[in-house]
Design a protein around this nucleic acid. Structure first.
Ligand code: SF4
Ligand code: SF4
Lengths: 138, 138
DNA sequence: TTCATATACTACATTATTGTGGTATTTGAT
DNA sequence: ATCAAATACCACAATAATGTAGTATATGAA
C-alpha cells in the first residue's frame, strides 16, 4: 500500500528542490543531500525532465530546476511520470471480469477509497508536502 | 495501489473454496479452475494452511478445506498471512521521520484513507466477496 | 578553443517477486 | 502391507524493480 520506491524518490527530489525553485541543483548535490543511489537518481531526473516536471540544463554549471512553481506540481503528475498510473485505477482484488458496472459488495466500499486516494494525489501539490519541516530534515 | 499478486491469488482460491466449504479440493482442481501456476499455488496453499486459513489433508483423497466459515475469514487475515502487513501502515511518501505525531499537510488526508482501507480489509469477509456472481465465473 | 563539469545514454548487476522441477513424505482405500 | 494420489519441501528459473559502471555528449567560463 504505497507508491513505488521510484515514485517516492521522485517526490523527495522535487520536494527538496521546491525549497528554492530558482536555484539550479546539479544532480551531484541532490544525490548527496537525499542519499539516493547516484545513477538511479540521475536517470530519474532525466525522466522527470522529459515529462516537463523539472528542466535540465546541460553543460558546466548546469543542473536541474523546477519547471513550475511548487503549487502547480501535483503528486499525481510525478507518479504518472515515473510509473504506470493505470495501476492505481484497477481492482484491489485483481479481478478483471467486473468493474463499476458489475460491482461486488467490496467494490462499493473500495471504489470510494480508491477515488479518494487518486483525488488526494491529484489535489496535493509539492507546496503542500513541503510545509512539514520534519519531512525536509534531509 | 493494489495487493500483491500473491495476495490476490490467495483471495481467489479462498473465494472459490467458499462456494462449498465442506468440500475437499485437491490442489490440482484449484489449479485447473483458477489457472494459477501449479507449484506456486500449492506452495501458497501450504502457507495458508500454516496460518490456519485452510486445513490441509494429506494423503490420497486429501486436499484443502476452509478451516472456518467464509463469514469468518477476512481479507486482512489472508493478506497478513502471505505478505508483510506492516507495509500497509506506512507513509505513502516513504518518509520515516514523521508520523501521526508530526503530520505534514498530506498526512491529514492520507491517514484517513489508509485507515479506511485497512478497515475495509479487516471488515470484509470472503462471504462478502463471493456475493458477486461475476467474480465467481472462474 | 579549451576544458572542467554537467547531463544523456546504454549496458549490465543486484535484489525481490513470481513461477517451475524434482523428490520425499503422508495417507487411506484396497 | 500395498500403492495411487495427495501434500510438503528444497533448490532453481524467469521476470520485474532497483541499483551500478562506463562512456558519449553538451555547454559556458576562461
Ligand atoms: S466489483 Fe469487486 S472484484 Fe470487481 S473490480 Fe470491484 S472490487 Fe474488484
Ligand atoms: S506526515 Fe506526511 S510524510 Fe509524514 S508519514 Fe504522514 S503523510 Fe507521510
Amino acid at each position: 500500500m504505497n507508491l513505488s520506491k521510484t515514485s517516492q524518490y521522485a517526490i523527495r527530489v522535487i520536494s527538496f528542490m521546491a525549497y528554492d525553485n530558482r536555484q539550479i541543483y546539479p544532480a551531484s548535490v541532490l544525490v548527496k543531500k537525499l542519499k539516493i543511489s547516484d545513477k538511479y537518481l540521475k536517470r530519474l531526473l532525466t525522466t522527470l525532465s522529459k515529462h516537463g516536471i523539472v528542466r535540465s540544463i546541460q553543460g558546466r554549471y548546469g543542473g536541474f530546476v523546477l519547471d513550475k512553481k511548487p503549487e502547480n506540481i501535483f503528486i499525481y503528475d510525478i507518479v504518472a511520470a515515473v510509473e504506470n498510473i493505470e495501476k492505481y485505477y484497477g481492482c484491489i482484488l485483481g479481478f478483471s471480469e467486473c468493474s463499476d458496472e458489475n460491482p461486488c459488495p467490496l467494490h462499493e466500499k473500495w471504489a470510494p477509497i480508491r477515488d479518494e486516494l487518486i483525488n488526494l494525489l491529484k489535489n496535493t501539490s509539492i507546496a503542500d508536502v513541503v510545509k512539514n519541516p520534519k519531512i525536509m530534515k534531509f
